[in-house]
Amino acid sequence: MNSQHTHSIDPTANLSGQAVATPEPEPPKAPPRKSQPPSTRTAMQTSIQNSPEGKTMIEIDDLSFSYDNGKTNTLHNISLDIPEKQVTAFIGPSGCGKSTLLRCLNRMNDLVDTSCITNGKIKIMGQDINAKHVSPIELRKQVGMVFQKYNPFPKSIYDNVAYGLRIQGIKKKSVLDESVERSLHGAALWDEVKDRLKDSALGLSGGQQQRLCIARTIAVRPKVILMDEPCSALDPIATAKVEELMLELRKDFTIVIVTHSMQQASRISDRTAFFYIGELIEYDNTANIFTNPSVKQTEDYISGRFG
């Protein structure tokens, strides 16, 4: 793990220069055309790139998703495997479907009445999460989520962290106390807030609030944490702290992060997936994506030529 970590950090330090300046070492694959049937392409890619090392946590198999009862697909035939206890980053221009895919992973899209999965499956820990007998409530306890805009409840810090446990019916104070402290430690927030746990969470700074949201999420001990652009509303210093935290959390949790910041993806992720208009273009180790992308579109995007 550690070696992998340092390995991935190294090339990203001079990512932009390298990516733009050096030509492709391998002949770039032809970018997939719309006319080409996507299933054959993804099937091929799955065999080559989409099975990372380590135990697989989430398997996405040929997933198509629609927001309007299947009239038009927002996601087209996505297949990728997300490894356990690693950070997987989804990148791509706005509207490419990366947040949609992320929200499919804990069935947040159920909130949209007209949404539906038109094709394919998502398996988490080997279980199809859209199967009839799967409760989205139990699923979300295992697959937590941190949102783009930090959204602590207008309650005390303590109550925020204890919220997830309380709705599960845990009322015992000692259990709650222990869990709150552990979660705040886990979110690297304990030292900053230990003296004012009863104060309103809204009195914290933006970065602290986002870390509080992370603490709130890990308090229910999920297996997977989904992060939807967690740093987009934060300043660089707060961002740095959250990123540091993510690298720490990687030891215990599988993390999937959607980000617009290429630097962030390269700094923190082990695996990176690049999406474009609802299709998965490339999915590989982060080092490969940023130093040696196999698809022209990926290279264009990470080098800033579009998007």
């Binding site: 947040m108 909130l111 409530i137 979300r140 306890k141 709705i167 949201c213 999420t217």
Partner: peptide, 8 residues
């Protein structure tokens, strides 16, 4: 969303 994501 936050509440639902916490398993409510």
């Amino acid at each position: 969303e936050a509440s639902l994501a916490l398993g409510a």
